[in-house]
């Protein structure tokens, strides 16, 4: 079994606290966690970076060439911006995850909803990635791999500290409950 990180000495110290938390969580409904607002900010910024210049171009060029009435074209990108702004917000709110006693739950999507359950024992690899843009805004993505390629368990836009906590937590639980194919 391969795991992205091995639980170090600190893992053993945290285990007591973790076990108590798990005991409380394991019984009832899952305790959902939302994503931090950083991801939403980045996505909206990228959207604005594309559509504001597009709106300027669509407004100024026809406005100067064909008359002021044609400047109304700028409304199209602006409408797209407003729409995208709302969509991104809804999509961001739909992302949530829960660490249960024995499995990880990830739920996402507004129109196309998807909920994934991965038992800790089936994890082959936990991966934390952070691209240049993500790093600039202090974000990281946690991805879980199982032996099944179809398993799509990704949590984007986490604060690095939370991503690392999650990675260590998952690795520890994965080792404890590890099962073969």
């Amino acid at each position: 079994m391969e795991l992205g990180s091995t639980a170090g000495g600190t893992a053993a110290e945290n285990d007591g606290a973790g076990a108590g938390e798990r005991g409380a969580v394991g019984e009832g409904a899952p305790v959902w966690r939302a994503l931090p607002p950083g991801l939403l900010r980045v996505r909206r910024l990228v959207l604005a970076l594309w559509l504001v210049p597009a709106a300027l171009a669509a407004g100024l060029l026809p406005g100067m060439l064909a008359g002021p009435g044609w400047a109304l074209f700028a409304l199209l990108p602006l409408a797209a911006l407003a729409w995208g702004w709302v969509l991104l917000g809804r999509n961001w709110r739909s992302w949530r995850y829960a660490e249960r006693a024995d499995d990880l739950l990830i739920s996402r999507g507004v129109l196309w909803r998807e909920e994934t359950v991965v038992p800790y024992g089936r994890m082959q690899l936990v991966e934390v990635t952070s691209g240049p843009v993500e790093r600039r805004f202090g974000l990281a993505t946690v991805q879980l791999h199982t032996a099944a390629a179809a398993t799509d368990a990704t949590i984007p836009g986490l604060v690095p500290a939370e991503a690392e906590r999650l990675r260590d937590h998952l690795t520890r639980l994965g080792e404890a409950r590890s099962a073969g194919l």
């Binding site: 909803r113 998807e114 359950v117 089936r122 390629a149």
Partner: peptide
């Protein structure tokens, strides 16, 4: 290895959903 539930807009309208087992 993992269990997934998916639901598209049309399926939701009819109160349906799909379960996938990997």
């Amino acid at each position: 290895q993992s269990v997934r539930l998916t639901q598209g807009p049309w399926a939701r309208l009819h109160g349906l959903a799909s379960v996938h087992v990997d």
